[in-house]
Amino acid sequence: MENTLLQKGTTAPDFELHATPDQKLKLSDLRGKNVILAFYPADWSPVCGDQMALYNEMLKIFKKQNAEMIGISVDSKWCHMAFSQDRKMHFPLLADFEPKGAVSRAYGAYNEKEGQCKRALFVIDENGIIQWSYLSPDSINPGADGILDALEEISNAKK
């Protein structure tokens, strides 16, 4: 399978992953909302910490655009729980843990060499179609301007 990032216009592959040790989240349950998927290499690593901290502050802004933020890495649900509590995260971090990296692979966002997610962003519209995707170098925090532009485009297209 070619490991390139899924592009605009593609139906977002559905998945169901642990958000907490006893709760799972299914992408298709979020139909009717825009969804931001942020794949990131690892909990606790410095760049990811900053990137997720930024998104954590932006939830109100995303909400205005009817958008839900979701983080995904191959860390386990227990690791996510500790990271999330430590950083006071208010959005779900999903564990692409078993089979390891399966969802990341389906999105073309898996780094086979390192065995972790690439730093990739997807904006999925209310119908489950990818409207924007972006691959950032591992060491660079991509910020959120691209996400906001994509959400704005979705909302303009509806007018």
């Binding site: 930024l54 932006m58 802004i61 959120a144 906001l148």
Partner: peptide
């Protein structure tokens, strides 16, 4: 201010 920052790509 915050929102203008994220729109301009401020990430930290």
């Amino acid at each position: 201010d915050f929102e203008s920052g994220v729109k301009s790509g401020v990430n930290g």
